[in-house]
């Protein structure tokens, strides 16, 4: 019964971590590469299709993808025994793998924080899920937009650290 062994479960959590990560970063890139640049080109009467239907559904899978990614990632790091070394960026351990995965984990954690504490609360105001004055909506849109762009920027080195730790360092 090989599949009940620790190496199998570690592999299974890595698989779930990658699935969740694709759900998260796929939506992040959809927002930044497709939806946001397309909004100014969409006629006003068609915009509610995005704001009332597509964006709320995309945001649901986006934020819960982020949650599943961090939870499975922390479990995985714990199972692999490098959680505490990685949190300390492998400093003093002379272990390039733990330094690389540690940077990936910190970048991912900052991105998870941005999703749940900056993007989602502000998007709720923008989309009218919670009531907000027009000025407040504008400000919320600016904060959510910049946090989303920050995450797009951070996703590039984060993925280098994650993939590099698995296959190079």
């Amino acid at each position: 019964m090989e599949f009940v062994s620790l190496p199998w479960w570690t592999m299974a959590f890595r698989w779930l971590h990658v699935i969740s990560g694709i759900m998260w970063i796929g939506h992040l890139w959809y927002f930044n590469f497709v939806q946001t640049p397309s909004m100014p080109k969409i006629p006003d009467e068609q915009k509610p299709a995005i704001t009332k239907f597509i964006a709320p559904t995309a945001l649901f899978w986006f934020r819960w993808g982020a949650m599943a990614t961090i939870v499975t990632g922390l479990i995985l790091a714990g199972m692999n025994g490098y959680l505490s070394s990685a949190i300390k960026l492998g400093i003093g351990d002379h272990n390039p793998h733990n330094t690389a995965i540690g940077f990936g984990m910190w970048l991912g954690t900052i991105m998870w924080f941005n999703v749940w504490f900056l993007i989602w609360p502000n998007q709720k105001k923008v989309l009218g899920i919670v009531p907000a004055q027009p000025d407040e909506k504008k400000r919320a849109g600016r904060i959510a937009g910049l946090a989303s762009r920050t995450n797009t920027m951070l996703s590039i080195p984060m993925l280098y650290a994650m993939v590099g730790a698995g296959h190079y360092y």
Binding site: N32, L89, P96, N98, R149, M153, P157, Y160, A161
Partner: peptide
């Protein structure tokens, strides 16, 4: 000054620049 994150292109370029910084940091620490 314009925020570089207002441009998708600058955002991606900054992501690659940060990756170079990250590579140097990993080598410096490990």
């Amino acid at each position: 000054m314009k925020n570089p994150l207002d441009s998708l292109q600058s955002t991606v370029v900054l992501g690659f620049v940060l990756t170079v910084v990250l590579i140097l940091l990993i080598h410096a620490i490990a």
